[in-house]
């Protein structure tokens, strides 16, 4: 099939969104489903079709999402209502909008990497990630499943973290 000439093609805008927490594991299809659900839930199917949102690519802790020109504000608003991917809590924060993917790529900052740590709080083992900026994401596992606790290095005293099995804390 012959492609449409450029003048007849749909004009598009691209939105750069930051993913929090950066450690979440999900592919572009998962993001597409979560975003589509958020858009159609907020604006309805007719407006969702107008917005024509699509996930283009994931680069580290950032996501590039495509939409029709003129609908980028509505897409950004819908992105703030995305709460979970695969039932894992997440926050998508729209950072910037552009007409080209190349311009958005320049705004992508390197992700702050963390070291895996294990510590003992009130007699029970916790694993987690200790980031260079002092933030700690602790993962608490029990019979009900796993739960993440977000804290900082300074909070470890109030959590009575008695032993650490890794450096850093």
């Amino acid at each position: 099939m012959k492609p449409l000439p450029p003048t007849l093609r749909e004009n598009r805008r691209y939105v750069l969104a930051r993913i929090r927490p950066s450690t979440i594991v999900a592919d572009e299809r998962d993001w597409h489903i979560a975003i589509s659900e958020a858009v159609s839930s907020l604006y309805g199917d007719i407006t969702a079709a107008e917005i024509h949102a699509g996930t283009i690519r994931q680069e580290g802790a950032y996501l590039i999402i495509r939409c029709k020109r003129g609908w980028e504000d509505k897409l950004s608003t819908a992105l703030t209502t995305v709460r979970a991917v695969h039932q894992t809590p997440v926050h998508l924060q729209a950072i910037s909008t552009s007409g080209t993917i190349k311009a958005l790529k320049k705004k992508i900052r390197p992700v702050i990497t963390g070291d895996e740590v294990t510590c003992v709080i009130n007699g029970s083992d916790h694993s987690g990630i200790y980031y260079a900026d002092g933030n700690i994401d602790l993962i608490r596992r029990d019979m009900k499943g796993q739960e993440v606790v977000f804290l900082t290095k300074d909070d470890m005293e109030s959590f009575h973290a008695t032993t650490t099995k890794s450096d850093g804390i």
Binding site: T77, V90, Q93, F150
Partner: peptide, 18 residues
């Protein structure tokens, strides 16, 4: 209830626009 629920000022403006 979580840092994942916190929204920026810009996002607040967008949500209030609804």
């Amino acid at each position: 209830y979580s840092i994942l629920d916190q929204r920026s000022v810009r996002e607040m403006v967008q949500l209030c626009g609804l």
